[in-house]
């Protein structure tokens, strides 16, 4: 009896330990992120984030940057009357991150490219996003549609796999140091982003840590965003007035030039 209880407990423990999230909760890596706050002023045109840390010498690094979950309404294009390509309806893709950027080391990227099942089992890549996503549509291949969604987001620079950004240096005590510069897109929406750093060894997660990066509008853009959302009509009227004044001033300047 005692033996069977022990076996059951052992099986349960093995099952729990096999889940990536459990591994994530226990193993920890030393990682520094600079800066951890991006201030998006009037001249913001993308930002660089420096990530540095130490991982076991025999492991490889994968960095993942994700945004909050969002719902999207999209137009679906298809063939009509066998000839014309046009919008055939609306598709809703729910519970997908607003940003999903992967920065794999060369070895991790090669493993990704090979499309090994073990990699998918880790639940770190785009497959994991598809799994948690809710795609509302009548009948169609959901993964094909999700692929199109990823293409669309990649075009905006908000999704993607950015290669050759992780660099290693020899460390001490069986460790090696790594550094990576994350280039964030200019179209980055305001919000708090989760930066996950994974140390991967033999297709399993050997170490993990998570940090937060905040992207915040400041100065004129922050004021304008708040004004536009809280006083829409007044904002519209002022935008029109400024445009008219700009047009009139240019007109007057040019008229002045003509008089000379």
């Amino acid at each position: 009896m005692k033996k069977s209880i022990f076996i059951i407990i052992y099986i349960i423990m093995m099952f729990i330990c096999g889940q990536p999230e459990f591994v994530l909760a226990t193993a920890s890596l030393e990682v520094t992120v600079r800066p951890n706050q991006i201030l998006m002023g009037a001249l913001y045109n993308g930002a660089n984030i420096s990530v540095m840390g130490n991982v076991p010498a025999d492991s490889e690094v994968l960095i993942r940057l994700t945004g909050h979950l969002e719902d999207y309404k999209l137009k679906k294009k298809g063939r009509a009357m066998g000839v014309l390509w046009m919008n055939l309806g609306i598709v809703e893709i729910q519970k997908v991150p607003s940003l999903f950027l992967l920065y794999p080391s060369k070895a991790v990227n090669d493993s990704l490219q090979a499309g090994r099942q073990s990699w998918q089992d880790l639940g770190l890549g785009f497959e994991a996003v598809l799994k948690q996503a809710n795609i509302v549509l009548d009948s169609e291949d959901k993964s094909a549609l999700f692929e199109e969604f990823v293409k669309l987001e990649k075009k905006s620079g908000l999704y993607g796999t950015i290669k050759n950004t992780i660099h290693y240096k020899q460390g001490k005590g069986g460790m090696k140091s790594f550094s990576c510069t994350l280039a964030l897109p200019s179209g980055l929406p305001q919000g708090v982003y989760k930066l996950d750093v994974f140390a991967i060894k033999d297709d399993a997660i050997a170490g993990y840590t998570s940090k937060e990066i905040e992207a915040k509008k400041v100065g004129m853009p922050a004021f304008i965003t708040s004004f536009a959302f809280n006083h829409g009509t007044l904002y519209g009227v002022l935008a029109v007035l400024v445009a008219i004044i700009a047009g009139l001033v240019t007109g007057v300047i040019f008229k002045g030039e003509k008089a000379h």
């Binding site: 853009p221 536009a228 829409g232 009509t233 904002y235 519209g236 935008a239 445009a243």
Partner: peptide, 19 residues
């Protein structure tokens, strides 16, 4: 003028800095 005010009021999509 009409479109700008309507868009600002309904969709909040007028980016003044860009404009």
């Amino acid at each position: 003028i009409n479109v700008t005010i309507m868009q600002a009021n309904t969709n909040h999509t007028v980016d003044f800095v860009l404009a």
